[in-house]
Design a protein around this nucleic acid. Sequence first.
DNA 1: GTTTACGCATCCCCG
DNA 2: ATGCGTAAAC
Length: 685
Amino acid sequence: MQHLAAAKIDYKKELNAEQYAVVSGGDGPCLVLAGAGSGKTRTIVYRVAYLIEHGVRPEEILLLTFTNKAAAEMMSRIAELTGGDSHARFARGQSPWGGTFHSIANRILRAYGTQIGFTPNFTILDQEDSRDLVKACIRELGYDNKTRRFPSASVIQSVLSYARNAMRPLDETVERKHPGLSKTLEEIGRVAELYMRKKRQANAMDFDDMLEHLSELLTREPMIRAALSRRFRYVLVDEYQDTNRLQAAIVRQLASHHNNVLVVGDDAQSIYSFRAAEIRNILDFSRDFPGAKTFRLETNYRSTPEILNLANEVIAKNTEQFPKELRSVRPPAVKPMVAPAASTGREAEYVADRIAELLESGVPAKEIAVLFRAAHHSQALEFELMKRNLAYDYRGGIRFFERAHVKDALALLRVSANIVDEAAWLRLLRIQTGIGDVSAAKVFGLIRAEGSLAKVIQAPIEMAVSNKAAAGWRDLRALLEDAVAAEGRAASLVRAVLDSAYVEYLENEYPDARERLDDLEELARFAEGYEAVGDFLAEIALDDAKASGRNAGKINGVVLSTIHQAKGLEWEAVFIIHLNDAGFPNRRAAAEDGGLEEERRLFYVAVTRAKKHLTLSYPATVARDSFELAGPSMFLEEIDQSSLDRSLVDGAAGGTDDWPVYEEPAIQAGDEFAAIAKRMKNVRK
DNA sequence: GTTTACGCATCCCCG
DNA sequence: ATGCGTAAAC
């Protein structure tokens, strides 16, 4: 039995005054500027609980988040907070709608997609599928002849994607992001058109389509817009600073009836402009939603005053922002440390030493993180940690569902769910020996004419292609026969792959075939939980965790992560490495419009991840073709040096009092490392 | 002449 | 990992 008395929440007691104001007064359009570590998630969770307690039905609430993982976490906290009763109710489908824009779009489009010409079994194309399809378009249009240079499929895919998310015309986007491509603008436009047609024919949507089609649906179908916007009495959006223009348009449409739209975010943490995030969404919210209330959460529960001083100082240098100052509630501890080193190798040794000390003093490994601007900045450190046998977890890398062999197997599921899924067919065909781009395109043309898998098997396809390609086709056909026998059961389809010539292919091709086969076994087990192939595939396509492979979310060691991936996380001790003028700010990013401010925000995000220990280090040389001297990052120079303690890693030969300059002997040490690292790199794959 | 496979160099900022 | 040049197979 649930005791209802306990379910009653004492909001005033459990929230601070800033948070309580939002939770109790969040009707109408609201902008919540939530600083790092200010209890943002808590505030959203309590707000939803508050609404439910005040009679709003859970299913009238829409919660849009940056990742599905974040949505799941909030949902379970909401269920917990509103009493065990909600668990049961939520399970019966009367829960708030929560998820990313893409997953919510998916839910809506499965229901209403027929209105814009899609059947509910539409396929979702990930970035790779999308690129493959663009490649097919380029080939079909004859733009890939060797006599003339033409932009690659991935470049075109990325420029198209950016233009659509930013809601900008293609020519303007090309001009701004890839001015070198302007002379092929017309051809790129034709590729874009054909790509669109192909997706329609394939009953497929890429990630951008999901947003665009939803927005279109809401614009063109007043009845549907009315139905949905009436349904969602309360719309809440998390991480609003990283939404793009298309997403903001969707928010406006979904909230158009009740106008109860509460967005939470921190303009100082907007770091996704490279994929069209629009910081103006949050900066101009009050203009977009007249009469909007603004709330501020500025009490920081995470970091020491020393760290917040530094953070405040850093972000004050930006101009395009809401001025803000985070206040710490923690007792003073130690100043952040800055550590110049002679080379990447010496920097790595220094960081490894400090990590060892922290571990020694009882800080758990999972409370220590090393953050960096670019993935390859961690290379030297990885090498050093490996050498010392210090366990580390590299966040990111290739995700389970993005591994080639997993995608190969999934392609079979896709064609059995959607016979016209061109990207999946091309993938299956290209695996076969003897079938290249040309034969694959030809065979797909024949397959599309058949209409069902059963008919495809009967079709005289080998007559239409070369002998070599015909042999490849016969291998694939054997697999397709098993696929028909699987009758749409996801697990049986995966097992069919494990029972086919594909196994030999893996064994011949890859030294780690055993692990890859294990992955497929795991995929089969995973598939057993699903009735319909379509549900299974949609779930996978939208799953942002996607890490359910070998390193399924378990953290055993020190965390190594890019700053982007560290968003929203916190650690007792944080190292930010490679803070030199050659690495951070990134030169190309800083050259973009507003790019330098975004780089500074990135630095701010990194700094605010730390609870107690913060160490900023950099190598004073970088290994390119030869060795080049590098000074400290401008972000380090901007800081009042009294905010920092310093640790000289190597003896310096000169330079100013603050920033040392190293000479030959110290650099030699780096040289030796670079040689080893280079060898390592070649061995790795 | 086309198509495919393969070896080699070079290249990556961030999801 | 991607792209290019080349050699071999059709």
